[in-house]
């Protein structure tokens, strides 16, 4: 399977993950994760040539779409980070994501992203800004863009693994936690590998998109488990 197929597959999966949650959202359940999945779908869509090159010219052809992509990604990680820390019942992760330090990391990332974006010369649409990789500020912009996602993912790896190894938990939830933890680990690994400047070749695409794939599959498993539970709604009498 080539990279393009993987990207479209991931896009379809994100959209599917969001769509299946729509009935629940209309009843007021799971709005945050739904929003995150919609934003994730937008972000994945904007990393595809076909979509990016259609959208960016409409927005002025100065790569504002890439800035939009970054914004979506930060929002996705903030929302999912908060929810997952709560789902895994990890106070430390909650504090690291929503506490002063987490907010500071987010603020620094957003400001730096804006600064480097404005400081760059970005005339003419180019997916992932690949056409401008000779500019120093563009390279800085790309590095900064990975900072916040990696930070949030790193906060969630340990609680995720912990939940996956919890022998008392439901097997389906352990599996889902395992997928989520694997997804976060890939996000961290992706950033770490780039920091040590390893040449990733085709893994450049496979690594981040696998991370998204694993995360969305994990979320879908929990959604399915919730749905089954709501349908059966067995309020077992614990005293019987």
């Amino acid at each position: 399977m080539n990279n393009l197929a993987i990207q479209w597959l991931v896009l379809a999966l994100c959209a599917l993950g969001a769509v299946v949650r729509l009935p629940g959202v209309l009843q007021g359940r799971g709005r945050v994760v739904f929003t995150a999945l919609v934003l994730l779908t937008v972000a994945v869509g904007l990393s595809l040539d076909a979509i990016y090159l259609a959208v960016d010219p409409v927005l002025g052809g100065v790569n504002v779409a890439n800035l939009l992509l970054r914004g979506c990604l930060y929002a996705v990680f903030l929302l999912l980070g908060l929810r997952m820390a709560a789902a895994f019942d990890s106070r430390l992760a909650s504090r690291l994501v929503a506490g002063p330090f987490g907010i500071a990391v987010l603020a620094v990332t957003v400001l730096a992203t804006l600064y480097f974006f404005l400081a760059s010369e970005l005339q003419g649409s180019s997916t992932g800004l690949r056409g401008f990789d000779t500019q120093d500020t563009v390279l800085q912009y790309i590095v900064v863009g990975r900072l916040y996602p990696a930070y949030v993912a790193a906060c969630l790896v340990v609680p995720g693994v912990h939940a996956a190894l919890d022998r008392q938990a439901r097997p389906l939830h352990r599996l889902a936690s395992g997928f989520l933890a694997a997804g976060f680990t890939l996000v961290v690994a992706n950033v770490a590998l780039r920091l040590i400047a390893a040449d990733l070749h085709q893994w450049d695409i496979i690594l981040p998109f696998s991370a998204i794939l694993l995360t969305v599959v994990g979320l879908c498993l929990i959604w399915a488990s919730h749905l089954v539970n709501v349908r059966s709604r067995r309020r077992a009498n614990k005293l019987a």
Partner: peptide, 24 residues
Amino acid sequence: VLGKQIRRAELDDGKDRAMWENLG
């Protein structure tokens, strides 16, 4: 014995609910 079982079951219920309410 019953008390221990119920405590265990409620703990598990709480974990399930945390999963469903936050990510379901």
